[in-house]
Design a protein around this nucleic acid. Structure first.
Lengths: 257, 257
DNA sequence: CTCTCTCGTTGCACTGAGTGCCAAGATCCC
DNA sequence: GGGATCTTGGCACTCAGTGCAACGAGAGAG
């Protein structure tokens, strides 16, 4: 078998070599100042092979979004009726964060690049849009029959993406220092508090346990499943809200169908 | 002065001729099957002039978004402290709708085009993104000092855009039949009910304008700060979340600096 | 009236992304 | 060894977009 020695990876060596060469040139020369011919020359491969692995020059900057999008789609597809939809899409968003957090250095470099190059920003937008549509499609399925089903699905999906990106960008701006998971959890918590309600009928579980925190990780945890009946509901309302509204919120929060 | 006779417009005749020629060819031949040379040949002008009026081939499909974006920016800039921010951005979004509603036939044709051509969808996304950033920038200015100012600004801007687009697209899908204004008002009413609150100390003014929203306004709504000492905080976490995370959420929610 | 200065328009040549086609080499299976 | 198949590379082509310089019409000065 091929030894996992110095070379980058095993499965698609050429692809990774192209990404490495591309980023090296992009960083030292700039994106638009680098031609595809420069990349393939540095990588030592034929120009035609570049476009075999990447449909366009922009794709080489986002080499793993396609896989991540597939993961997210699968994650949403394996969701059951028991899952609370808003929580589910928030968890799906965390998949994207995890991908960024896997390679902080790479992500920060790419962020600097996309911030400067309008063409890359536009490309990133189209990628983000596909994530958002995946979330919205899932939510539409879960909210069919509800009063403003598709409207709410679209708005919630947009809110989740915006919150995720807000936290992600602030993390990237700080050069990947700090815990991205915490920031994203906070941002998604805001969205969840705004739109979410747990489907669990368990009413009484007032406060989380002290927890000796064996897991410093806020449990981003990609493919988690249904086994979280132990949520704690916290709800923000005005004190001047009529009581019936509070009760209504409360009831709908703890799991109407 | 030049008479406003039969011709489309007066100021830039060449620009309009290019738009007309482009759409004629796009509709009968398809976007990607039409080259810039085809357009300029039909319009009877030099190829170089095309790129004088439109930075790229895609721009000819959205000839008036630049102006609309400037209008929106101006509209937001002339806003005073007295305006309720969420209402203001909703009104700003209505400016975009108005532009679409001015030429229903044109808008529907363009919608069909952008729906089919991936490149145009990507371009439209970048345009929409600029609208969203304009809204978010305004909201950030209005929410500075608030607990999660920039987060809330980004999320609200995204929600407004999503709601607007939801209604707009459904109107476009129906060939421009029906009242687009009503649909958008309803969608924006949902957003306003979700995020909005009157900045006025007047407690009893649920919906000032005739937004056509007799909605009971679920107003889930995140946490306001200083001028609302009467909030009740409700927080959603997992039971297995470490306590430090809960405390952190709690503090950041009730607006520490 | 003519010269000139300017501005809008145009043609031309060039770069670079992306594609189709086919040849050359590697691999696998028999 | 002898295909069949897949990957890679090279070549030529289309088309978007840009820089440059020339051309022509209108405005103003003499």
């Amino acid at each position: 078998m091929s030894s996992s020695s110095a070379a980058p990876a095993a499965k698609p060596p050429m692809r990774d070599a192209l990404v490495a060469a591309a980023f090296q040139l992009f960083l030292e020369r700039g994106y638009e100042q680098t031609t595809v011919d420069d990349i393939v020359a540095l990588a030592g491969v034929g120009r035609r092979s570049f476009f075999r692995y990447f449909p366009s020059k922009e794709d080489v900057v986002f080499p793993d979004h396609e896989r991540c999008l597939a993961d997210m789609t699968a994650f949403l597809a394996e969701s059951g009726e028991a899952d609370e939809p808003v929580r589910r899409v928030c968890d799906a968003a965390r998949l994207v964060l995890r991908m960024y957090a896997e390679n902080p250095a790479f992500s920060v470099q790419r962020y600097r690049l996309t911030k400067k190059v309008p063409g890359l920003r536009a490309y990133e937008l189209s990628v983000v849009w596909r994530y958002e549509r995946a979330l919205a499609a899932y939510l539409r399925g879960r909210l069919t029959g509800r009063p403003d089903g598709t409207l709410r699905a679209d708005v919630i999906a947009a809110a989740v993406v915006a919150a995720h990106n807000n936290a992600l960008r602030s993390w990237l701006r700080s050069d990947g220092k700090g815990d991205a998971g915490v920031a994203v959890d906070h941002a998604l918590g805001y969205v969840q508090a705004t739109f979410g309600r747990s489907a669990r009928p368990h009413p009484a579980s007032p406060l989380p346990e002290p927890v000796s925190a064996p897991t410093p990780a806020p449990s981003v945890s990609g493919g988690e499943r249904a086994e979280h009946p132990d949520d704690v509901i916290v709800l923000v309302t005005r004190r001047d809200a009529p009581l019936w509204r509070v009760v209504q919120e409360f009831e709908s929060t703890l799991g109407r169908a």
